[in-house]
Amino acid sequence: MTAIDGPRLAPASGQAKALVVFLHGYGADGNDLIAIGREWQLLLPDAAFVAPHAPSLLPGSPMGRQWFPLTFRDPDERRRGVIAARPDLDAFLDAELVRTGVAPDRLALIGFSQGTMMALHVGLRRKVPPAAILGYSGMLVSPEVLKDEATGKPPILLIHGDRDEVIPIDALFAATDGLGAAEIPCEWHLSPGLGHGIDGEGLRQGAAFLASAFAPRKTFARMASQG
């Protein structure tokens, strides 16, 4: 097992009550997404943020990293890749939850591209389902086994550009279909004119989605006592 690490942001409030983990795309590293945490701190003051670097270097790149190798020639490499990469990421998430003192059900996974593949694969198989999964410009790997392997049904939001030249929008609709077949609800948003990236509207919707997922839930008993 390979230990992974990356940049962190402490909660603006000073006390972590939630943990947001950014999973970067193929060829990037944790520094690529941690700045989003700075934008979201006002709306999520009790959240700690971390953006781990994927465990292996991208061949031929001095700094780029990958969660798993991609040749784009083998149709099965994504399935093998997410399975192989899962133990390292799971161990990192467990360690971060202990380090921050955050409960496992107060975890949110945010992915971009290959990071979205990891967020969906790992998040839907965690022993304790996360509070939310947010995926940008990604895809759902091996949807045919999801119904048998999923351990929960956390809130999911998928956001994709309709001009994505790397992972076409067909991947978004394949993901929503695959999640639906596994009886896992999913929200989605299509960003007009956007290629393989994240725009301001996607950031706004992502932040609002997380704020809703982390908001305290009133129990029936509490609601009845207030009625």
Rank of each mutant, 00 (worst) to 15 (best):
residue 206 G to N: 04
residue 71 T to S: 15
residue 167 I to Q: 07
residue 67 W to P: 06
residue 111 G to R: 00
residue 84 A to Y: 08
residue 12 A to S: 02
residue 2 T to W: 00
residue 154 P to H: 06
residue 53 H to Y: 09
residue 15 Q to E: 15
residue 185 P to V: 13
residue 48 A to P: 00
residue 110 I to E: 13
residue 27 G to F: 05
residue 75 P to W: 02
residue 46 D to R: 03
residue 81 G to E: 01
residue 55 P to K: 13
residue 107 L to N: 11
residue 6 G to T: 14
residue 44 L to P: 06
residue 91 A to H: 01
residue 66 Q to V: 09
residue 36 I to Y: 11
residue 223 M to T: 11
residue 77 E to L: 09
residue 51 A to F: 02
residue 15 Q to L: 14
residue 152 G to M: 09
residue 58 L to D: 05
residue 178 G to V: 08
residue 213 A to P: 01
residue 8 R to P: 03
residue 45 P to G: 00
residue 48 A to W: 11
residue 81 G to D: 04
residue 85 A to E: 11
residue 27 G to V: 02
residue 39 E to M: 12
residue 173 F to G: 10
residue 111 G to E: 06
residue 77 E to D: 02
residue 18 A to Q: 13
residue 54 A to F: 08
residue 156 I to G: 04
residue 148 D to K: 15
residue 70 L to S: 03
residue 16 A to G: 03
residue 75 P to C: 03
residue 151 T to M: 15
residue 188 W to L: 00
residue 222 R to A: 15
residue 49 F to L: 07
residue 158 L to Q: 12
residue 179 L to K: 10
residue 147 K to F: 11
residue 63 M to W: 12
residue 105 D to I: 10
residue 47 A to M: 06
residue 153 K to L: 05
residue 92 F to M: 00
residue 152 G to Y: 08
residue 37 G to L: 04
residue 80 R to Q: 12
residue 82 V to T: 12
residue 135 G to Y: 11
residue 49 F to Q: 04
residue 179 L to R: 09
residue 89 L to K: 01
residue 224 A to P: 13
residue 161 G to C: 13
residue 138 G to N: 10
residue 103 A to G: 01
residue 148 D to H: 13
residue 193 G to L: 11
residue 147 K to L: 12
residue 126 R to G: 05
residue 215 A to N: 14
residue 65 R to N: 01
residue 15 Q to C: 12
residue 132 A to V: 05
residue 119 A to S: 11
residue 215 A to L: 14
residue 188 W to T: 11
residue 1 M to G: 09
residue 218 K to W: 15
residue 39 E to R: 15
residue 182 A to P: 14
residue 4 I to H: 00
residue 157 L to C: 05
residue 142 S to G: 00
residue 124 L to R: 00
residue 183 E to L: 13
residue 74 D to K: 06
residue 221 A to V: 15
residue 16 A to F: 00
residue 143 P to T: 05
residue 19 L to V: 02
residue 41 Q to N: 04
residue 100 T to V: 02
residue 156 I to E: 04
residue 164 D to N: 05
residue 18 A to D: 08
residue 207 A to V: 14
residue 108 A to S: 06
residue 25 G to H: 12
residue 214 F to E: 12
residue 100 T to E: 07
residue 51 A to P: 02
residue 47 A to N: 09
residue 103 A to E: 11
residue 61 S to K: 12
residue 107 L to H: 14
residue 9 L to S: 03
residue 6 G to N: 11
residue 111 G to S: 09
residue 107 L to W: 10
residue 165 E to L: 11
residue 209 F to T: 07
residue 98 V to N: 08
residue 172 L to G: 02
residue 95 A to R: 12
residue 226 Q to S: 14
residue 18 A to K: 12
residue 137 S to R: 03
residue 67 W to T: 03
residue 113 S to A: 03
residue 108 A to E: 03
residue 187 E to R: 15
residue 206 G to Y: 12
